[in-house]
Amino acid sequence: MPPAVELRSVARRYGSGDTSVTALDDVSIAFPPGTWTAVMGPSGSGKSTLLHCAAGLDRADEGQIILAGRDITRAPEHVLTELRRRSLGFVFQNFNLVGALTAEQNVALPMRLAGVRLDRRAVKRALADVGLGDRGNHRPRELSGGQQQRVAIARALVTRPAVLFADEPTGALDSRSARTVLELMRTVVDERTGQDGAAPQCIVMVTHDPVAAAAADAVVFLRDGRLVDRLAGASARQVADRLATLED
Rank of each mutant, 00 (worst) to 15 (best):
A4D: 05
V5W: 14
R8V: 11
S9D: 15
G15H: 04
G17D: 01
D18I: 01
D18Y: 09
S20Y: 15
A30H: 11
P42M: 11
G46S: 08
G46V: 01
A55D: 06
E62S: 01
A68Q: 04
A68R: 01
R70I: 08
I72T: 02
I72V: 00
P76S: 08
V79C: 13
T81F: 14
E82C: 06
L83S: 08
R84L: 04
L88N: 11
G89C: 00
F90Q: 02
L97Q: 03
A100M: 10
A100D: 11
L101H: 10
T102A: 02
Q105Y: 13
Q105H: 07
V107M: 02
V107P: 01
M111N: 06
D119P: 05
R121Y: 10
L127Q: 00
A128Q: 09
G133F: 12
G136Q: 05
N137C: 09
R141M: 14
E142C: 05
G145A: 07
G145S: 08
G145F: 13
Q147I: 11
R150W: 15
A154P: 00
L157W: 04
D167P: 04
P169G: 00
G171T: 02
L173H: 11
L173Q: 07
S175N: 09
A178Y: 12
V181C: 09
M185I: 01
V188W: 05
V189K: 09
T193P: 12
D196Q: 04
A212S: 09
A213H: 13
A214V: 08
A215I: 08
V219S: 06
V219Q: 12
F221S: 01
R223F: 03
D229M: 12
A232D: 15
G233L: 15
S235I: 07
A236E: 14
Q238S: 14
T245P: 10
L246R: 06
E247A: 08
E247M: 15
D248V: 10
